[in-house]
Nucleic acid binder design. Structure first.
Lengths: 339, 339
DNA sequence: ATGGCACGTGAGAGCGCTCTCACATCGCGA
DNA sequence: TCGCGATGTGAGAGCGCTCTCACGTGCCAT
């Protein structure tokens, strides 16, 4: 493996000059630059990242920490899409992505040491549950960090989220606008920001359209298909007269749909269903699923922007970025095209 | 940030000794070790990874390159599950995962430089299509590498795969055993090992059970739900008398199911369907989907084992690991429990 | 007593790079 | 003509770690 020094000798210049050329410094004359570039090509020189990091104190990579039990991760297109957005934005900035998925407490310990060691320049935390100690520890260590989705109370950090309240309200308005009066919801986990916010928005939406608040109409699940199906069964049991369901994820919506059909309810005639995410599945299902579209890739991009900002400008006031959502009417609420 | 030197001063020993303690060398007396450990804790010392890498010439991280268009990545639980397996095994070995998803040719160029620079100790390539130049280039650069799924011809590398031929044959046998005689298939992309192997296995299976080979019964798609649905429509058009479908992925199976139902065919009465992957979706669907289970997490683990072996022992003969599959009968073929 | 041998420890070189600072050179205005 | 700033280049000092080698010490066999 060729070194800077070898290139310098080959080109007949100093190491400093080669370094300047390699790093695109403007203070190099055109012909010297050419000579050096030739030498670089000839020797197939590629800078040693470790040596560079050692002096620049930058790793040019960021960590993405996903602390989520296997179940949801496997099914939900949310993570791949977020990954895509994050990856695209990092790639554009020539940063690398280190994926961190601690499986247990032990792994989380090691994770913390890893992050504290400066292996990455900053961290994106995603899918934070309840009282995870990680964000607090990272903050104490001074590791730049941003959070995807409103973090649980107690965690102070910049974050990117969609306006879940308004999203849920719009879903309820849509259903009420179709004449539905017994609108149920399958909410997400209540130890997560998204879970709480969408449920709250659902209640607010009911109030907005003048419908009573009935806790029998609210079930919670874990965002998975199977979880959604189970919640739907519970709902049918306690509120057999429901005529609409707002599920806080498409997967749960799909699960609900399956159960409704098995229970002999027609969708959308008897029960209208609205999901959340506008995943590919929503459009492909039979009937297609009305859903609240959220710009997941854009969230990923914005997370990276925020993180880079925080890395470069040092610690600043925390920022919050709220992206907006859009209701996409489809067959399952009878509000759109039949498929 | 505390350095080795600071710890050495604090503990009243040399840098070398601290290094030994930190790296768990046995040649340190118990009390010195204790003293050093105390100093480490007191100063909150964490080794600088760049400095360490610089001398050890190891980065203790491996790259995972996924070159797959967005579509499939978003829906298919295959990737998250593989990721999980890879991540678990890496974690157990204290290695880190750098996720690389080049979006375009330009990004692939940078990717290659990145890998060549020794930023990672080795690379896992996954979902290789047709004539991707990447594996060849990596090989030329001497970057340790393993491939998930049989690589396209021309690429010589260790790889892990399932026995796709036998898997497909078992699916066909299952369907034929149920009395089906017009068994169609929705195959994967034919520029991928899995795509080719499962299609071939399908044909072999037909021969095995004494059914004629009819190319009208074979459609190809891209592993996605929508692709599977489109293929199913084509199949129904050219072979309306089909009574079974073997889809090379659950997603395509689900797409086929939707189309069959929309076309008024009952599943499994009129048409039996078998998928591939045994994804959570397969068990959750209505009707549940008979599927060929493949040990995806285990593939990920094995990939890492192979890669580590190749990193540690230097270049050796390529190895191939074939994992076996298992047919899981469910409702869609009428062969299992109703849901 | 004396040589030899573990064993534990320290000194010091060096990994490949960046970056500051000093210096040489040149053109231009006074 | 001289000085002075702008510009391009080189020398050299580290960044924080590992690892080889040499050395001091204590113990056993002789």
């Amino acid at each position: 493996m060729a070194t800077l020094d070898a290139v310098a000798r080959e080109a007949g210049v100093s190491r400093a000059t080669v370094s300047r050329v390699v790093n695109g410094s403007p203070k190099v004359s055109a012909d010297v630059r050419r000579t050096v570039e030739r030498a670089v090509t000839k020797l197939g020189y590629v800078p040693n990242p470790a040596a560079r990091s050692l002096v620049t104190r930058r790793s040019d990579s960021v960590g993405l920490v996903i602390t989520e039990p296997a179940g949801r991760l496997f099914e939900d297109p949310f993570f791949p899409r977020l990954l895509r957005g994050i990856s695209a934005e990092l790639s554009a900035r020539n940063l690398q992505l280190v994926l961190l998925m601690p499986e247990d407490g032990d792994a989380e310990q090691r994770l913390e040491r890893y992050l504290a060691a400066g292996h990455v320049d900053g961290v994106v935390l995603v899918s934070l549950h309840g009282a995870d100690p990680l964000p607090g520890h990272l903050q104490a260590r001074g590791v730049p960090m941003v959070v995807g989705g409103r973090p649980p109370t107690g965690v102070s950090a910049s974050y990117v989220d969609v306006d879940n309240g308004e999203a849920a309200r719009s879903a309820v308005r849509h259903l009420a606008g179709l004449g539905r009066r017994r609108i149920a919801t399958i909410a997400g986990p209540q130890d997560m920001g998204v879970g709480v916010d969408r449920l709250e928005g659902y209640f607010e939406g009911l109030a907005e359209v003048g419908l009573p608040r009935d806790t029998a109409l609210a079930a919670t699940a874990d965002f998975t298909y199977e979880g959604g199906a189970a919640a739907m069964r519970r709902l049918l049991h306690v509120a057999p007269d429901l005529d609409a369901v707002f599920a806080a994820s498409d997967l749960m919506g799909a699960g609900a749909l399956g159960v409704l059909r098995a229970a002999g309810r027609r969708v959308p005639e008897d029960v209208a269903v609205v999901g959340f995410d506008d995943s590919p599945l929503a459009a492909a299902m039979e009937p297609s699923l009305t859903s609240v579209r959220q710009p997941i890739e854009e969230m990923g991009r914005e997370l990276v922007r925020l993180l880079v900002e925080s890395i470069e400008r040092g610690h600043r006031a925390n920022r919050r970025v709220l992206l907006s959502t859009e209701l996409v009417p489809r067959g399952s609420s009878g509000g759109g095209s039949p498929r």
